[in-house]
C-alpha cells in the first residue's frame, strides 16, 4: 500500500520540487530577472490572459491553422499514398521525389510561400500542410503496399475490383501505419504553425510571444510557453487515445 502510494506521489513531488527550484533560482536572481520570471508570475500572467479573455482569440487562430493544415495534409497524403502504392509505375516515378522532400525543413518553404501567397492565413495553412504531408504519405505508401499475401489471394478468389480490395483489405491493414504518420504530423503542424506566425506577424500565440520578446516582457513569453506546452501535451494525449479507440479491433 505505502509502495503504491509512493509511486503515485513521487512524480508529483518531483515536479513540485523542480517548480520550487525554478522559484528559488528566480528569487535569488541567479539569472537576469529581466528574462527569467519565477513560476508564480508566469502562471499569474496566464491566469490574467484567461480572466480577461485575451488568450482565446490568438489560441483559436493557432489551433485552427494547425488543424486545417494537418487535415488537408492527411487527406492528400492518404489519397496520394494509396494511388502510389497501387501502381508500381507511380511508385518508381514518385517515391524518390517524396524521399528527397521528406528531410526538407517545412519552415524552409516559408520564404517562397510568402513571395507567392503573401502574409496570409492561406500561406500558413499551405506551409503547415506541406510539412505534415510527408509522414502521412510515406506511411500510406508503406501501409497500402504491405498487404498480407494471403489477403491478396482471398481478394482474387472473391473477384474483388481493385477499388473493393483497397477499401476492404488495404485500408484497414494500412490504418495503423497511417495513424502513426498522422501523429508525427500533428506535432510538426504545431511547430510550423507557431514558426509561421512568428515570421509573418499573423495574430496567434507565436506572434504574441515574439512581440513580447521585442518588448522584453518575459512573463508573456513564459505564459506562452506554458500554453504551447499544454497544447502539445493535449494533442499528444488526444491522438494517442483516439488511436487506441479506433484501432481497438486489432
Amino acid at each position: 500500500m505505502t509502495r503504491r502510494l509512493a509511486t503515485l506521489i513521487a512524480p508529483v513531488v518531483f515536479l513540485l520540487a523542480l517548480l520550487y527550484a525554478w522559484t528559488l533560482a528566480a528569487d535569488a536572481k541567479l539569472v537576469n530577472p529581466l528574462w527569467f520570471p519565477g513560476p508564480e508570475r508566469s502562471f499569474a500572467k496566464l491566469g490574467e490572459w484567461i480572466a480577461t479573455g485575451a488568450l482565446w482569440s490568438p489560441l483559436a487562430s493557432t489551433v485552427w491553422r494547425m488543424l486545417a493544415g494537418w487535415l488537408a495534409a492527411c487527406a492528400v497524403g492518404i489519397a496520394l499514398g494509396a494511388a502510389i502504392a497501387s501502381s508500381p509505375l507511380a511508385r518508381r516515378l514518385l517515391q524518390p521525389s517524396a524521399e528527397f522532400l521528406r528531410p526538407l525543413p517545412a519552415s524552409a518553404l516559408l520564404p517562397p510561400a510568402i513571395l507567392v501567397l503573401g502574409f496570409s492565413n492561406a500561406m500558413i495553412v499551405s506551409v503547415v500542410a506541406f510539412g505534415c504531408v510527408w509522414p502521412v504519405l510515406l506511411a500510406a505508401i508503406h501501409g497500402f503496399g504491405a498487404l498480407d499475401a494471403r489477403l491478396v489471394e482471398v481478394a482474387r478468389l472473391l473477384n474483388f475490383t481493385p477499388w473493393q480490395r483497397a477499401w476492404k483489405f488495404q485500408l484497414p491493414s494500412a490504418l495503423p501505419h497511417i495513424f502513426a504518420g498522422m501523429r508525427v504530423s500533428i506535432a510538426i503542424a504545431l511547430i510550423v504553425t507557431v514558426a509561421s506566425e512568428m515570421l509573418s506577424s499573423q495574430p496567434g500565440i507565436g506572434y504574441l510571444m515574439l512581440v513580447a520578446a521585442r518588448a522584453f516582457r518575459s512573463t508573456d513569453i513564459f505564459a506562452g510557453i506554458i500554453v504551447l506546452g499544454a497544447l502539445g501535451f493535449l494533442i499528444n494525449y488526444g491522438t494517442q487515445r483516439l488511436e487506441g479507440r479506433l484501432l481497438r479491433w486489432r
Partner: peptide, 13 residues
C-alpha cells in the same frame, strides 16, 4: 511536448 519554436522568443532575449 513544448514545441521547440516556443523557445525562440526566450532564446532571443
Amino acid at each position: 511536448p513544448i514545441p521547440s519554436v516556443a523557445l525562440i522568443p526566450l532564446s532571443l532575449l
